Amino acid sequence: MEAIWQGLVQAFLLIIKLNPGVMEVVTLTLKVCGLATAISILIGVPLGIFLALKAFPGRQVVVSLVNTGMGMPPVVVGLVVSFLLWRSGPLGYFGLIYTPAAMVIAQALIAAPLITGLTMAAIQQLPRGLKIQVLALGATPGQLYWTLLKEARLGILAAVIAGFGGVISEVGAATMVGGNIMHQTRVLTTATVMEVSRGHFDVAMALSFILLGLSFAVTFALTVLQQRERTGKANKRRFLRFFRS
């Protein structure tokens, strides 16, 4: 209990004093996780909608790969990305290994299957007749996708929350492709592991609390947006039932 209290006090002091080292790590964490989440959204949401609506040969294989990716150990992703980006690897020419860009790539690959799978499930849970009704009204394919996206936005927001949670808590792949280099690729998770290995448990506890606070703040903002949408839909239904009665 004393270690937890010391960690809380240390975290408070580091934040209040705007410790340059901690602020640098927090800033890089936000940049890497934010960009990785954004890329995974751009990949996962359209792919999830496509898999939910389209039937094509090999679809079950693709869906199985997505579902497998949802539970893929991050260290496996880190190993694959490291192999590709090593100087002797297929993409070694670009010199991305041990850079924030490599961390973004690895974390996007971790989050993309989560967002794809959960988006696909959200679209599939919509009423079956909705697609037919929208097309019967003369909607184009783009209008159809946009309508389904709006109707499934609560589930898709849940997918985004899961994707962000997957990248901000990741440590194995970030260490493998980033190297935990000071002033370059050190983020909150890798810094915490490093401080534990050094025996600096108070600093590690402080970094953990900062990481938890950061994760909670972003997740809370997304949750508020999600629940506001849910409340708005519920109020709309009650409003329509009132006037119909």
Rank of each mutant, 00 (worst) to 15 (best):
V104S: 08
V81N: 01
G58M: 12
P74R: 13
G117P: 10
A152D: 07
R128H: 14
G166K: 08
M120F: 12
A52T: 00
G92F: 07
T116C: 13
P57K: 12
M70F: 05
A111P: 07
Q143Y: 01
V80H: 02
V77F: 04
S82V: 13
Y93F: 15
R128T: 15
A55Q: 15
F164R: 11
G58E: 08
Q124N: 09
V134R: 04
L148Q: 07
Y145T: 14
Y93P: 05
P90T: 04
L149H: 03
Y98D: 01
V63G: 09
I132V: 15
M70L: 07
G89H: 02
G71P: 14
A111R: 06
G117D: 13
Y93D: 06
A112R: 02
I105H: 03
L137T: 15
R153K: 14
A122Q: 01
F50H: 11
Y93M: 10
Q124R: 14
L144S: 09
R153V: 14
V160E: 01
G138P: 02
G163S: 04
K131H: 05
L85W: 07
V104Y: 08
T140H: 12
Q133E: 13
P73G: 00
M120D: 06
R87M: 05
A106Q: 06
Y93V: 13
P57L: 02
A122M: 08
W146D: 00
I156M: 06
Q107L: 10
V77C: 01
G58H: 11
S64F: 13
G155K: 00
P113F: 01
P74Q: 06
V75R: 05
F56R: 06
P90M: 09
G165M: 01
F164D: 04
R153A: 14
G69A: 12
A101W: 15
L135N: 02
I132F: 12
A55V: 15
I156P: 08
L84W: 06
